[in-house]
Simulated assay, not measured.
Amino acid sequence: MVLQRHYFFALSLPEEIKLKLKECCNQLKNSYPFARWVHELDYHITLAFLGQASKEQLNQATELVGQNLHESHSFPLTIDSLGIFGRKETPRIFFGGVQREEMLQEVRNQVFKSCLEAGFKLETRPFHPHITLARKWQGDDKFPYTTFEMEKRLVTSLTFKANQIVLYESHLDREQKYEAIKTFTLND
């Protein structure tokens, strides 16, 4: 059976931020039993999920992303909260949330526009930037939503310079699932 490859553009995180998020997750694993915790090297903020793609379509998208990000500058970004997606009792995603940053929205819009121009059909839900930390609640009890609401701030905010947009290829059969195919560095 051939595994389908999926592609996406994302804002990458610096290694030191990935390690700090991993430490945070290690402290949370016993309290929040999710089925799969994301490998720390796979932490990112998705900007545009492409799904399957031909080489020609990927080449066109990367060319357009490069052109549209040519004038874009790096910016500070802060991870400061934890959150969930899905049902309160059995969430499907546990994530690190970021403070609102207009430059992130601008970069996302440039990437999104480039992918549409390359012919990709993209998700139309509003952009909610986050770092997926774990998937699929598997606790014996319901997710402790009330307690979580009171504790969901990160003990220490993590601020970093957002300066790289990456085209990733998914390898769902690997422990580290995402391989960088092309990297775009934003201007300082």
Rank of each mutant, 00 (worst) to 15 (best):
T62F: 07
E63M: 10
E63H: 12
G66D: 13
Q67V: 11
Q67I: 11
N68Y: 13
L69G: 09
E71G: 04
S74H: 12
S74W: 04
S74R: 12
S74I: 10
F75L: 03
F75V: 03
P76N: 11
L77A: 04
T78P: 03
I79W: 07
G83W: 00
I84A: 07
I84M: 12
I84K: 05
F85S: 06
G86I: 07
G86Y: 12
K88W: 02
R92D: 08
F94R: 14
F94H: 13
F95N: 12
G96D: 10
G96N: 08
G97W: 10
G97R: 08
Q99L: 14
R100N: 14
E101K: 12
M103W: 04
M103E: 15
L104F: 10
Q105G: 11
V107T: 11
V107S: 08
V107C: 05
N109A: 15
N109H: 13
N109K: 15
K113T: 14
S114V: 08
C115K: 06
C115F: 02
F120L: 07
K121Y: 07
L122I: 10
L122V: 11
E123M: 10
R125V: 05
F127T: 07
H128T: 13
H128A: 11
H128I: 09
P129V: 00
P129N: 12
I131K: 00
T132W: 03
T132Q: 03
T132F: 08
L133S: 08
L133C: 06
A134W: 01
K136M: 03
W137I: 05
W137V: 04
W137H: 08
Q138G: 10
Q138A: 10
G139E: 09
G139Q: 11
G139N: 06
D140A: 14
D141R: 07
D141C: 09
K142C: 04
P144T: 08
P144S: 03
P144A: 06
T146D: 13
T146E: 15
T146S: 13
T146Y: 07
T147S: 14
T147P: 02
E149W: 01
E149A: 12
M150H: 12
E151I: 05
K152A: 03
R153Q: 14
V155Y: 00
V155E: 14
T156D: 14
L158S: 03
L158W: 02
T159H: 00
T159Y: 01
F160N: 02
F160E: 04
F160L: 01
K161I: 14
A162E: 07
Q164F: 00
Q164V: 00
I165C: 09
I165W: 01
I165G: 04
V166H: 02
V166M: 07
L167V: 06
E169N: 01
E169F: 01
E169D: 02
E169T: 07
S170V: 12
H171P: 04
H171W: 01
L172G: 08
R174V: 01
R174S: 11
E175G: 02
Q176H: 11
Q176N: 09
E179W: 12
A180W: 00
K182M: 13
